[in-house]
Simulated assay, not measured.
Amino acid sequence: MKGILLVNLGSPDSPTPKDVKKYLGEFLMDERVIDIPLIARTALVKGIILKTRPKQSAAAYKKIWWDEGSPLIVLSKRLQNKIQKQVDIPVTLAMRYGSMTIKKGLQELVEKGVDEVLLFPLYPQFAMATTETITALAEELRQQYFPNITIETVPAFYNKQDYIEVLSNSIKKHLKGKDYQHLLFSYHGVPERHIRKSDVTKSHCKIDGSCCITPSKAHEFCYRHQCLEVTRLVSEKLQLKEGSYSTSFQSRLGFDPWLQPYTDRTIERLGKQGIKNMAIVTPAFVSDCLETLEEIAMEGQEIFHEMGGKNFITIPCLNDDDEFVELLSNWINKWTETNVETM
């Protein structure tokens, strides 16, 4: 019997420093998130970050927390419930970090009689710190606890035509009737070394301005290429004029070089250049979360206003948008009838 396991990032159980510390500890100790030797990672995370960051992050979570709970969890559950109504096989939900574990999600499916699992990371682009850490953990759990099941994984869907159409329609819908001069595509940032580590050719990714537009096998696992490709495909779909849109990366941590240009500095630059009305979309996420609701919608807007900007339009993630639900449900139904390669 087939079944679906949707997996998103995760969230602390509450916006308190204690719960946030527990969540951040699990998240930042992941070797695919902070990819330095264990001793150094432990010293950095437990010796420095967890002594100050939980209080700051808890304050940020409190700003965006809903009565029903964490927005990311609530929105992911809504997505799961809507998909379940459109497919005939069990659909469960798990988080890579936090109390809604992948192990619990797999166990729930097994208890329903599932022995063929479609693992569905809810990330359009591949990255070490998102897709890869989910697939690696799922395989570890399968070997240790669920040896009688098989797991197939949905690959990055950043360039699928039907996904681009749904994303473009969402952007168009939320910008309808609104005056804006510039549309910024802001993606989650990763260290530059993650791009090089994910390069299956071990030579293509130089982050030099040309490698991402030069055909290569490396693009299958290149987060930077896949982000730039989403921007390109959506801009073509929406017929955006050259110069009226751009791409940036947010949420850098530490002193190592991360993907650039940085979102906060880009917003600042646009304001200084005299842009009064701008819109921003975050296509690295399918569910609104701390990064989109606080870092972008609140902090980003504050930066823009400080630079003289007036209207700062934040476009929601796809969340449980009906078109997005239909898209994912169609992919799942195709897999139910055939296999993941035909999705």
Rank of each mutant, 00 (worst) to 15 (best):
L167Y: 12
N169M: 12
K172C: 10
H174L: 06
K217C: 05
N169E: 14
E165N: 14
I164N: 10
D162I: 06
C205A: 08
R193D: 12
D208K: 00
S216P: 05
I207G: 00
D208W: 00
S170L: 13
H188C: 04
H194R: 09
V166E: 11
S186V: 01
Y187W: 03
Y163H: 10
I213W: 04
S203Q: 14
H188F: 05
N169P: 07
P215T: 04
K197T: 10
G189H: 04
S186E: 07
S168V: 07
D179G: 10
T201V: 07
K217Q: 12
E192T: 11
E165P: 07
P191Y: 04
Y163V: 07
I207C: 02
C205G: 03
D199A: 05
C211R: 01
V200H: 08
V200G: 08
P191A: 08
V166P: 08
I195L: 12
I207R: 00
Q161C: 13
L167P: 09
T201I: 07
G209F: 00
S168D: 12
I164Q: 11
Y187M: 01
S198D: 09
Y180N: 06
Q161S: 15
Q181W: 06
K176Q: 14
A218I: 02
S210G: 09
K176F: 12
S186R: 02
G189W: 01
C211E: 02
V190A: 13
H188W: 06
I207E: 01
T201S: 15
S168Q: 12
K217G: 05
I213Q: 09
C211M: 05
H188P: 09
K173L: 14
Q181H: 10
G189R: 03
K176W: 10
D199M: 04
H194I: 03
I195Q: 05
Y187A: 00
G189K: 05
D199P: 04
C211W: 01
K197Q: 13
T214I: 07
Y187Q: 01
D208T: 00
F185R: 00
H194L: 08
T214F: 02
G209S: 03
L183H: 02
Q181G: 12
T201P: 11
K176I: 06
I164E: 09
V200T: 14
G177R: 10
K206H: 07
H188N: 08
I195V: 14
K197R: 15
I195D: 02
A218Y: 04
Y180S: 09
V190I: 15
H194S: 10
Q181P: 07
S203P: 05
H194N: 13
L184N: 05
V200E: 13
K172I: 05
C212P: 06
I195R: 01
R193S: 14
H194Y: 09
S216Y: 02
I171T: 04
R193P: 06
D208I: 00
S198Y: 03
R193H: 13
K217T: 07
K172A: 15
L167E: 08
L183E: 02
S216H: 03
Q181N: 13
S210Q: 14
V166L: 12
V190W: 04
S203N: 15
Q181D: 14
K206G: 02
